[in-house]
């Protein structure tokens, strides 16, 4: 059994699942469905497809649970499965031009802007500014290469270590740091006016796209 078992908060649950307690798996699904969804949407640029992929990732993880030996944390393993499924989907799309990536980027941009445009009540100025800012960040993120985008999301939102991100990406530690650095530099350039303006300083908690 790997050393990661000592640091894996899911270790007790995994042991139960390995012994046949499938009901316990629902706890892991509830715990990781949101972060998994957040990563997958930003890879495939399609919330509907992302949810299907998230389900497939959980199902695949359950079926392979006997082979999981705690050489990494469960979340790292799960995200690796999910990313590989997403990349397969992107490769499938590349063979079918009708489902091109650009169309999917437009779909994603529309999906999160429409969440704001559909509000029935007047929107406070501050929310409008925040909406535009978040839109710009998502737009800049969407234009990064997939590996940079994924690495930054995992680093920033999931608080994964460089070693864990390296496992998800399937590359070396130094390559991972380089990928994250390059991605951040590109984002800083794209968002320079907003970073200087101080708009990001507003201390609102993380919103959901369907919050009213």
């Amino acid at each position: 059994m790997g050393m990661a078992s000592q640091n894996d908060p899911d270790y007790p649950l995994i042991l139960k699942i390995k012994k046949g307690d499938s009901e316990v798996f629902a706890i892991l699904v509830d715990k990781y469905k949101q972060p998994l969804m957040n990563m997958l949407v930003r890879i495939v640029h399609d919330p509907v497809e992302a949810e299907d992929l998230a389900q497939s990732a959980f199902i695949q993880a359950y079926r392979a649970i006997d082979r999981f030996n705690f050489s990494s944390r469960f979340i790292t393993w799960l995200f690796t499965i999910a990313r590989n499924l997403a990349l397969n989907e992107l490769r499938r799309r590349s063979r079918h031009p009708a489902d091109s990536l650009e169309q999917s980027v437009e779909t994603e941009e529309k999906s999160f802007t429409q969440q704001y445009e559909d509000k029935k009540s007047p929107i406070p100025y501050e929310d409008i500014v925040k909406s535009e800012l978040i839109y710009k960040v998502e737009e800049a993120l969407a234009r990064l290469p997939e590996n940079q985008r994924t690495a930054i999301i995992l680093f920033q939102q999931e608080d994964m270590s460089y070693e864990e991100i390296a496992k998800v990406l399937g590359c070396s530690l130094s390559a991972t740091k380089s990928i994250i650095h390059r991605g951040r530099e590109t984002l800083k350039q794209a968002l320079k006016p907003y970073l200087k303006s101080g708009e990001w300083r507003e201390g609102s908690e993380t919103k959901k796209y369907n919050d009213t």
Binding site: S22, E23, F25, A26, V29, D30, K33, Q34, M37, N38, V41, P47, A50, E51, A54, Q55, F58, I59, Y62, R63, F112, L133, I134, V137, E138, L141, I152, I153, Q156, Q157, R184, L187, K188, L191, Y194, L195, W200, R201, S204, T206, K207, K208, Y209, N210, D211
Partner: peptide, 25 residues
Amino acid sequence: LSKLLQKLPSYPVSSNFTDRVMETI
């Protein structure tokens, strides 16, 4: 930049997501 990235919203997940996964497995 880090603060901005941390503020990125979450995408909605279907309310019956977990049920569908458990039903399948």
